[in-house]
Amino acid sequence: MSSPALHEPFEAIDRQRLSAALGMWVFLASEILFFGSLFLGFTVYRSLHPQAILEAGRETNVVFGSVNTAILLISSVTMAVADKAAERGLRRMVVGCLAATAALGLAFLVLKGLEYREDIHEHLVPGPDFKLKTPAAQLFFGFYWSMTAIHAVHLTIGIAAVCLFAWRVSRRAFDFTASAALPSLGLYWHLVDIIWIFLYPLLYLGGRAP
């Protein structure tokens, strides 16, 4: 009854799946600290320069931010469905949901790129001709660019992995029902989504209220 997905050094597929999930969660714990330290830096500056940070926060484009949040949340739904479909062995549904997930991820990146273009046009890149006069306002945009860029890198890796799996599942290249690869990829994708869930109020909602 051994599945082709079972590989050394494991002797049972359940244990292998649990181990893959644990390995991914351990990595995600690492990722929490990775992004968490960025949030720490932001929080420190927010406490040191509250007015300047809020003033700068009003400059981001809330439309792009909100639409992108919605896109990522929907992509998490399709990813979750892909995972469930894989458990039931529904190959075409898995491929379809993964393709939708990757497409939504790409849409996010495209919108992000358009937003970046607008930001550059509006002189929101820290430097001598920065839009706002308050020095500490540039700190906000230092974090805006680094955080969104690092998030985009994570998302790009996720999209590439999703495409790869969709392709392999559609080619019937591996036993996707038994393999732990898809659930692990799902965990990663959802974490990238969660990071954005916290980036959204941090970068787009601060200082909007009158």
């Binding site: 040191l48 820290p126 430097g127 020095p135 700190l139 680094s146």
Partner: peptide, 21 residues
């Protein structure tokens, strides 16, 4: 990574001139 961002792209992260620490 933040050092690299500050060095390559001039993003003020730890820059005291902009109130960074």
């Amino acid at each position: 990574a933040l050092i690299a961002a500050e060095r390559l792209f001039g993003l003020p992260i730890f820059d005291p001139q902009h109130g960074g620490d």
